[in-house]
Amino acid sequence: MKLEFEMDTYKSEIKPTWCPGCGDFAVLRALQTAIHALQLEPWNLLIVSGIGCSSNLPHFLSTYGFHAIHGRALPVAEGAKLANPELEVIVTGGDGDGYGIGVGHFIHAMRRNFDITYLVMNNQIYGLTTGQASPTSEKGMKTKSTPIEGVIENPVDPISLALASGATYVARAFSGDVKTMAELVKNGIQHHGFALIDCMSPCVTYNKINTYDFFRERVYDLQKEGHDSSDMKAAFAKAIEWPFVQRDRIPLGLFYRTEDVPTYEDLEPALKKGPPVRQPLGVENPDELLREFL
């Protein structure tokens, strides 16, 4: 069967500016593979990002994009989704963007359960600002901003945070396995509700600890080990395995998914009339509206 959109249809003319070997290439490829597999119309697809190396991603695709300010991709995406719920909205960004400066929006977007897919390219370091500690940097990691003792704070665990905040699709992927990542992204897009895919995406320039090899030696597939992703308790148990409990084994795959929770769009009263972007402007019967002021 001939597909309407080729892989290349989704590519823009702009070439990625990432360092050779950057994990973000794999995330771009996984996303492109997923939207190609779903044959999404590029003009009905909106990709919103913040600031950071990974947030340049929308420029490399031929869809609509909004390259927002640092940490604010999620609220921009939420506003767009509420204005036109028929758009497929995907948010991309880094760990600093989403788990640091934007962590407040991250929690609130998840508790609202917007039908939005969020890909975080998590490299556990600030790349674009040349190598400072990030909210997911491991304890003890020496960086430009933590040169003496290394990081002395605990890292944010996005998976536990997502589970606790009400995300209804929570997964972790790894740039060393594009095929599985593409599958997780595809399922996340199809999921009716908020999908977080935390993508471990090594920074080859500034993070010499959490490298491709670091992950390859430690990752395992949750689904292959029989994890039940409909069980929230089991999901929490798996979530805290790394980095809280130990750092020898790192679970990948789908931690949790439920379709039983209505999305924000399902419940918002103003959307019952249809997408706001297509509603008539103005007030038909102003006298009725003015009566309460008389």
Partner: peptide, 19 residues
């Protein structure tokens, strides 16, 4: 919304989407 940062950013997103 959760704060005024979200208020303005959501407004930007909605304006961009065409309302």
């Amino acid at each position: 919304v959760e704060d005024e940062l979200a208020a303005m950013n959501m407004t930007v997103g909605a304006g961009f989407a065409g309302v």
